[in-house]
């Protein structure tokens, strides 16, 4: 089943390669003029265009690009001066660590909130949930981020400076997974783990607040539907413990749409990262791609989109597997 799904993803990946290639070329900027420097004459710009290979025809450029891709070469970023692949290698874990921490926080808060709200509709906890949902949806991420920095860093001084993954004096742990929280524990460096966690807390909270709303709302709605269904009524009348009814029967069935949503929220967060990354100087892929886009720097943009596409394919696969674990019917159909 896994192989079939992976094969089915191939055409969409191919399509993405073509579309990003064409779209980046359609951007209004002129990379040659940008990189020729402040004093460049028109001839100098043309010289640089030739150096970058941008004077060739589009189809020729595309074939060259495909050749490079086949060799695993994503090109070189002109804004960082590094190969795109090594840039992504360093930056993707930063984004993933942030996103996963944010998602973990969001799930930890949203699931209980949603369940309790559904269990006691109209109660204070239901209203609280509604308030949090509304706030989470309506407050822009950059605003929450700046406010949190202002309160917890500037006024209270509880969290370290918003300087990215580590403060200026700590060196990153030896890279194994490139997740600083995991690597620092692997290296047995508790102080570093704390430092990394302290840096991560505020950005993860910012992003998590944003992700919390849809998850809580979906959990509540889905639980409400299930709790009023026949089999729950049967279970209750059969005298099963309320906890068993709620967790084993209701929650398990209510989780299906939530898991689907989680997949969407996760991929969405990876994109929404860019604002949080800017506010917290977080060296992730979102700000990387954005800067490249602004400079009409083709290679990193293409590399970024391609990587995201592959990531989504993997994520969808993962969600399908989760589905079959939660819902036995899926296994039978497959």
């Amino acid at each position: 089943m896994i192989w079939r799904r992976l094969l089915a993803a191939l055409p969409s990946v191919a399509g993405i390669i073509v579309v990003t290639f064409v779209l980046t070329r359609a951007l209004p900027g002129d990379p040659a003029a940008y990189f020729a420097g402040p004093a460049a004459s028109r001839e100098a710009v043309e010289e640089i265009r030739a150096k970058l290979g941008l004077d060739r025809s589009l189809s020729e450029q595309f074939l060259l690009y495909l050749g490079d891709l086949a060799r695993g070469d994503l090109g070189t970023s002109l804004t960082t001066g590094q190969p795109v692949l090594s840039d992504l290698e360093v930056r993707l874990p930063a984004s993933l660590e942030l996103t996963m921490a944010a998602l973990a926080f969001a799930i930890a808060v949203a699931l209980p909130l949603g369940i309790l709200a559904a269990r006691h509709p109209g109660s204070w906890i239901d209203h609280l949930t509604r308030l949090i949902i509304t706030a989470g949806v309506s407050l822009p991420v950059f605003f929450t981020g700046l406010i949190l920095v202002y309160i917890f860093y500037y006024l209270l001084g509880w969290v370290p400076a918003p300087l990215g993954r580590l403060d200026a004096f700590s060196a990153p742990p030896p890279p194994v997974t490139r997740f600083f929280l995991i690597d620092s524990l692997l290296a047995g460096d508790i102080a570093l783990f704390r430092a990394a966690l302290a840096q991560l807390a505020l950005p993860a909270l910012t992003l998590g607040l944003f992700a919390l709303a849809p998850i809580a709302r979906m959990t509540r709605a889905s639980m409400l539907g299930i709790l009023s269904s026949d089999f729950i009524r049967t279970a209750r009348t059969a005298g099963l413990a309320p906890r068993t009814v709620l967790v084993t029967y209701a929650l398990r069935n209510a989780l299906l749409p939530v898991v689907t949503l989680l997949g969407m929220v996760f991929s969405f967060l990876l994109g929404a990262n860019v604002v949080v990354e800017k506010v917290f100087a977080w060296p992730g892929i979102g700000s990387y791609a954005l800067e490249a886009l602004i400079a009409s720097n083709y290679a990193p943009v293409q590399g970024f989109v391609l990587m995201m596409a592959l990531l989504y394919v993997g994520l969808n696969l993962l969600i399908d597997i989760l589905y079959s674990l939660i819902d036995a019917r899926m296994r039978i159909e497959a």
Binding site: A161, P162, V279, F280, A281
Partner: peptide, 21 residues
């Protein structure tokens, strides 16, 4: 000398005012 990149102008100011930069 550590030169740290902080894209947000407001945060650069906060870092200076807090004495972290």
């Amino acid at each position: 000398v550590i030169v740290r990149e902080v894209p947000s102008a407001g945060n650069r100011r906060a870092l200076l005012e807090r004495g972290d930069a």
